[in-house]
Every structure is written in C-alpha cells, then in structure tokens.
Design a protein around this nucleic acid. Sequence first.
DNA 1: CAGAAACACTTGTTAATACAACTATTGCTT
DNA 2: AAGCAATAGTTGTATTAACAAGTGTTTCTG
Lengths: 162, 162
Amino acid sequence: MEQATADRARDGDASERSAHGEAWSALTRTHAAIVQRLQEMLSAADFPPLPWYEVLAAVSEAPDERMKMGDLAEALVITRGGLTKLVDRLVKAGLLERTFCETDRRVSYATLTPAGRDLLSEMRPAVIAELEIAFSANLSVAQAKDLRQTLDSVRSSACGAG
Amino acid sequence: MEQATADRARDGDASERSAHGEAWSALTRTHAAIVQRLQEMLSAADFPPLPWYEVLAAVSEAPDERMKMGDLAEALVITRGGLTKLVDRLVKAGLLERTFCETDRRVSYATLTPAGRDLLSEMRPAVIAELEIAFSANLSVAQAKDLRQTLDSVRSSACGAG
DNA sequence: CAGAAACACTTGTTAATACAACTATTGCTT
DNA sequence: AAGCAATAGTTGTATTAACAAGTGTTTCTG
C-alpha cells in the first residue's frame, strides 16, 4: 500500500514529498513553536518551567491528586530516571511530596501539596489562555476536536505494534 | 476578544475541558510517541540520533546543499548556541563542513559533504518507512494533507503575533 | 518455603541543551 | 569617515536529560 507515494518519497523530490512526511514535519514544527511560546510566557511571568506545569497538571487530574511514578513517567513520555529527578526538584520546592503504598512497598506516589495546588491554579489560566490564543485564532472547536481525534489515531498506531 | 472561550477555560472544569487543551495534549503525546519510535529505530539500526538526521535533511534540501547557521537554527527550532555544537559534532564526524560567505564574513554555512549525503541517503528510507507505518496505518493521504494544513494554520498563529 | 525472576524506583555517570556573555563584521547616523 | 547599534556565530557555564547499573520488594516456581 502507498507504494506510489513511497517510491516518490525515496528520492529527495521536495516538490511532491510524501503527504505523511509533510504531516510529520508540520507536527514537529507546530509542537516546537507552541512549546517555545509557552516557555517564553512562563519565563516572563516568573513561573516555573513547562515540565513542572505538566507534572502538576497530570498529578492534579489523578484520583486523590497523587500518581504512581511509573504511570506519571508514561503519561509525560519521559524516562523513569528523568522523572525521579524532576520530582525531586518539585519536592524540594514544596510543590509535591512523596507518599508510599501500603500494599506494595515498591511503589511511591507523587502527591500534590497545597502549595502545588495553589501554584497550579495560578499557572493553569495562563497556560490555557496561551493555548486558546494559539489554537482558537485559526481553529474552530469542531476542528480542534477533529484534530485531537486524528492525532490520537496516529498515536495509537505509533505506540502499539508497527 | 475571545472572552467567552477564555471564561469557559478559566476554571479547571475537567469534564468539558477546552477542546483546544485536549488538542494540545494529543499533539504533545503524539509527537513524543513518534519521536520515541524513530529514536528506537535509529538506535537499533546503528544510525546516528534523530537530530543528526534532521540537520542533514534540512541542509540537503537547501540550494547547493548548504545553509546559513541562523536559518538552520530557525528551521530546527533550536538555539544558535546549541546548533553550533551540534554542527561541531557533525563536522567532526565528517558529515558536514563549514564554508564561508564571500560577501558577508560574519555568516558561515553548514555544507553537506559526500559522506553526509551518503549517510542521509541510507537513513532517509528508514525514517520515511517508519513514518509511513505510523501514519498510514490509520490515516489516508487526504487526511494527512488535511492534518498538515490544520497544523500549519495553528503554527502560523502560534509563531506570529498572539 | 527457599531461591530465582520480575518489578518499581533510585542513583551515578555521561552527553546534550539552554542561557548569557563575548568576538567579529556589517550597516546606519550624523 | 567616525562612532554606535545591530547582526552572525561562537564559547563558557550551569541546568537538564538519557542510559545503564544498583537497591529493595514482590511474585512465581520447584
């Protein structure tokens, strides 16, 4: 399947490159542009960096505002080792605390502290506003939902078996 | 402007969270999933890491297979300082060489070497195949073009003025 | 109920990245 | 033309992340 496009894509023909390659290129650039925009906004507002927000947001949406380290690493798509040190920094800042599981002493939870909850409630509107600006300028709600669905279907095939 | 959507987004209503927030979440996760997949493939095939491919691919598409450092940094959405050291590594590996501009002695070009061109021609099919797998499984060519168009419109509003 | 295998997380080392200061060249202003 | 701001790239420092090995816990197996 897609033999024709694959053949056409093999040589460096930039004029009619594979539609999927074009989509990937647009995906990376758009992602980078929005990340950059968010980081600039957070830095200008004297907020912690974007990864901190992502951690806080993920934990806050979990039951009891706590999340297993492994699940959190998977949700953020980063390594476990990286998450350990990222959470270390958030704990040192008083935004998270580590709690432990009674039934399985291997697991540790990253749990939101009141300070973390407060900070998140300050950051969230700023982040959401920035996203609304970036998205809603050229995208209707229906288009955004369609985009989300399309991306999720791509992710499912990228994550699972090839 | 955008008062209604901003108001709706301000409180952290998770049940009917902003469609744009959902789209952003899907965008980050899909991007991360595909990057991870590509990196695993490259590592397994004993190829250089993904940033090297992105540099080679960008330079190869430029006229005369060379690109100004500043333009290259902008295309890859990384800092100038970071690009300097990234190109250093590629030069040391013999894949790029630095050439200079006659008319403006400030600018330096990253120029593809024959070895870089050869390596790129080996890597490109592998990367494209991986992308085809990830995308074409659940996406028609028409859908991919639509996705690209949607992402580009988002990027234009994210990059330009808010 | 030992002992090995699997699991969840942490730590230690190494490489990559960002950020800010620096050098060199060009263009603008008067 | 002299001086100053702007531009293009590099370098130096410190933060961040990745990869692999290590620790403690649980589960499976004979």
